[in-house]
Amino acid sequence: MRRGRPTKAQLEQSFDRALLRSIAEGGIASGTGLDDETQNTLLAVARAYPNATDELVEAARRAFAGQLDGSSTARWRAEKHHRLTGEQEQ
């Protein structure tokens, strides 16, 4: 069992395996350490099996890049703040 947060290298390895599985088998795995946005795009790739488009694969790569650089979390927090307060976060 893994303890703590996965490293960038572990996340990259996990994403690569998950993307390959989504493309080649039409499946996804849980417990990967990948965020919801990345998992959702991988699910879209898997649902398109065996005809996943380049656009779906690139969307998954962009979502994962957002996980790594923190922009997905920042967007999620801003959306949550807006839902709770009705205000735009500064």
Rank of each mutant, 00 (worst) to 15 (best):
residue 8 K to V: 13
residue 48 A to S: 08
residue 72 S to Q: 14
residue 3 R to Y: 11
residue 4 G to E: 11
residue 12 E to F: 03
residue 70 G to S: 10
residue 58 E to Y: 07
residue 6 P to S: 15
residue 1 M to V: 13
residue 3 R to Q: 14
residue 31 G to D: 10
residue 38 T to K: 12
residue 42 L to Q: 07
residue 17 R to T: 09
residue 83 R to E: 09
residue 81 H to C: 03
residue 8 K to R: 14
residue 33 G to S: 00
residue 9 A to V: 09
residue 74 A to C: 05
residue 4 G to M: 09
residue 25 E to D: 13
residue 9 A to I: 07
residue 33 G to W: 00
residue 73 T to W: 04
residue 71 S to T: 15
residue 60 A to I: 12
residue 81 H to Q: 04
residue 13 Q to I: 02
residue 78 A to M: 01
residue 16 D to R: 14
residue 15 F to G: 05
residue 53 T to S: 10
residue 38 T to E: 15
residue 41 T to Q: 12
residue 11 L to T: 06
residue 27 G to N: 14
residue 46 A to N: 03
residue 53 T to V: 00
residue 84 L to R: 12
residue 75 R to P: 01
residue 11 L to S: 07
residue 44 A to F: 00
residue 23 I to M: 08
residue 24 A to T: 12
residue 89 E to K: 09
residue 5 R to L: 13
residue 15 F to L: 11
residue 21 R to M: 09
residue 44 A to P: 02
residue 3 R to K: 15
residue 87 E to K: 09
residue 61 R to F: 01
residue 58 E to C: 05
residue 8 K to Y: 03
residue 54 D to P: 06
residue 58 E to M: 10
residue 43 L to G: 13
residue 23 I to H: 04
residue 17 R to Y: 12
residue 65 A to M: 11
residue 18 A to R: 10
residue 85 T to D: 04
residue 2 R to F: 10
residue 71 S to L: 13
residue 65 A to Y: 09
residue 27 G to I: 11
residue 24 A to Y: 04
residue 66 G to V: 05
residue 57 V to L: 01
residue 19 L to T: 06
residue 67 Q to F: 05
residue 27 G to S: 15
residue 55 E to N: 13
